[in-house]
Amino acid sequence: MANPELSQPPRPSLMRRYFRRVSGENAWFVLLLIPAVVILLGVIVIPMLWTLKMSLANTSVSVVGGRGSVGGQFVGWRNYIFLLTDPQFWVALRETLYFWIVSIGIEVTLGIGMALLLNRPFRGFWLVRAVIFIPWAIPTVVNATLWGMIFNGNNYGALNDLLLRWHWIAAPVVWLNPSPLFARIPWLSHALSAIGSNLAINAIIVGDEWKTLPLVAFLVLAGLQMIPQDFYEAARIEGASAWTQFNKITLPLIGPVLSVVLILRTMQLLRAFTILFTLEGYGLPVLSIGAYQQAFSFGNFGIGSAEAFIIGVMALVIAYFYVRKLYREEMQ
């Protein structure tokens, strides 16, 4: 009886099988994919793993024998434990979540509202669309500086000057100072402070939304324009009100676009840095600024990396729920 193992040709190695599979018509596909994979590995995967490694060590910069390096002893979860037991971290988390939730809220409501307005044909609507999009083209640092001038706390600050001329305020308001809101109503002031609301962060949200809202509106507008008009005509014939049309047709059908916008903006808002740092320096603690301060100002690269990694994980978790909801809706 012949040995079946001997009668069969030897099994090719894994690498050989892989190359055999891609050597045909898939070869170009794989070849064209390589740059993207290399870039993703180089600028996302490897830095993320490196950050994780740094966050698990007592990482610092050292110069030994005339050569500089970054390294440190493995300390396990100590940096994460330090952060989670540090009251400053929780203050920064609160500010970050406030910044994210309020910004997202404004973007969803006003963004959809703006998109609905822009979706109606009117004279010169191309011009209006172009003008509205201008803020998005302004670099973030320039936008921050611009709003710094508008919110300048002296009487020559643009907003103060306007409000003083209109006699809406008696004295200049220091908009960019993180002072409590409604200080004359203690219970309200405390309640707002407890959720991370103060004058400065709300002013910065206004400045940030001025730049970002047009992008959100245009993405939603793109979604609106893909909805067939037949749906609305049918609904009108059935006697559906404007609200019912919006609730039953518009909102579900722009859902996928909205989910993408939410994912994109959540990622941006949780790691928001430029506008906050330009206007406040280290004076308004959010997680991204805390991570930067720990690493580059205090030299605690391990703790800074841990804080940065927490921001990344938070963004991933939130994005996961968005994506899951998106796919569920698409499956239905």
């Binding site: 910069v61 970054v70 580059f296 100002s297 030299g299």
Partner: peptide, 17 residues
């Protein structure tokens, strides 16, 4: 000025200045 310290520390991490 606020960027000076960070620049010096970051540059110290390089093998050569």
């Amino acid at each position: 000025y606020p960027e000076m310290h960070n620049a010096i520390v970051t540059a110290a991490a390089a093998p050569t200045a």
